[in-house]
Every structure is written in C-alpha cells, then in structure tokens.
Simulated scan of single mutants.
Amino acid sequence: MNIAYWTIAGLLAIFYVYAGTLKAIRSRDQLRPMMAWVDHMPLPALRALGAVEILGAAGLILPPLTGIAPSLAPAAAIGFVLLQAGAITVHLMGGDRRITLNAGLTATAAVTTWLATRL
C-alpha cells in the first residue's frame, strides 16, 4: 500500500505543483490556450487557486514523509476531490464538455484518499 500511495500521490502532487505554478505566475493570455475558463474568474481568485493547488500537493507529500500531522494527507486528497468537482461544474456551466482530465483527477484523488487512510 505504501508503494501505491507514494506512486499515485507523487504523480498527483507533480501535476498540481505544475498546474498551480502556472496559475500563480502566468498571465491570462498565456493561460487561455490551455484553460478557456480563465476569463470567467477574477485574477486574484485564479492566483489563489494556484496557491491552493501547490499547498494541497505539499499536503499530500510532506505529512506522511515527515510523520508530522499525517492526517493532513487524506484531507489534502479530499480537497482535490472537491476541487475537481468544482472544476467539472465550472467547465459544464461554461459549455465546455472536455472534462475527461477532471474526471480522471477526481478518481485519482479519491484513490489517494483511500490509500492515505491506510498509511
């Protein structure tokens, strides 16, 4: 179970550090080709979303790694499930039906939640 957790949580953390960093530092014009929904969100909210994704990724890795507050790992994974549920809602409300990545991330975060409770 440990190997499964570290593999899945590590990949999820890499994805969210990358996506969060893009949202935190890039302009709307740079993000628009990848994320059509950025025009529907205020820039400070977009930056905050990027920070939340980076902090969530740290929450998946650091608590189990250090042994300090290991219950934060499942909380971070649950946070990503909720984040992706919101992302799917935003996509569908904007008329964007491309939610395959979001559905995959939701499932991956749900599996990570289950594995984190088994550490």
Rank of each mutant, 00 (worst) to 15 (best):
M1D: 12
M1E: 10
N2R: 15
N2Q: 15
N2F: 13
I3A: 14
A4S: 15
Y5E: 09
Y5C: 10
Y5R: 09
T7R: 13
A9K: 04
G10Y: 08
G10H: 03
L11N: 12
L12S: 05
A13H: 03
I14G: 06
Y16F: 03
V17G: 10
V17T: 05
Y18S: 13
A19L: 10
G20Q: 01
T21D: 05
T21W: 14
L22C: 08
K23R: 14
K23W: 07
A24K: 07
S27H: 09
S27N: 07
D29Q: 14
D29S: 15
D29E: 15
Q30C: 08
R32P: 04
R32C: 06
P33M: 12
P33K: 09
M34Q: 15
A36K: 15
V38S: 04
D39A: 11
H40E: 15
M41T: 15
P42E: 14
P42M: 12
L46C: 08
L46A: 07
R47N: 13
R47A: 12
L49F: 13
L49N: 14
A51G: 14
V52I: 14
E53Y: 10
I54P: 14
I54E: 12
L55P: 05
L55E: 05
G56Q: 11
L60C: 09
L60I: 02
L62A: 08
P63K: 10
P64T: 02
P64A: 01
P64S: 03
L65N: 06
T66N: 00
G67Q: 08
G67T: 08
I68Y: 06
I68S: 02
A69F: 00
P70M: 02
P70L: 02
P70E: 02
L72A: 07
A73K: 04
A75Y: 00
A76G: 01
A77T: 00
I78Q: 09
G79Q: 07
F80Y: 02
F80R: 01
V81E: 02
L82M: 03
L83F: 08
A85F: 01
A85K: 05
A85C: 00
G86P: 04
G86F: 07
I88F: 02
I88N: 04
I88K: 05
V90K: 01
H91F: 00
L92I: 10
M93F: 04
G94R: 04
G94V: 03
D96V: 11
D96S: 09
R97C: 08
R97P: 03
R97A: 06
R97I: 12
R98A: 05
I99F: 03
I99C: 01
T100A: 11
L101S: 08
L101T: 13
A103V: 09
A103K: 03
G104R: 06
G104S: 03
T106G: 14
A107V: 12
A109R: 10
A110I: 06
V111W: 08
V111H: 07
V111E: 02
T112F: 02
T113I: 09
T113R: 11
T113G: 09
L115Q: 10
T117N: 14
R118W: 12
L119S: 11
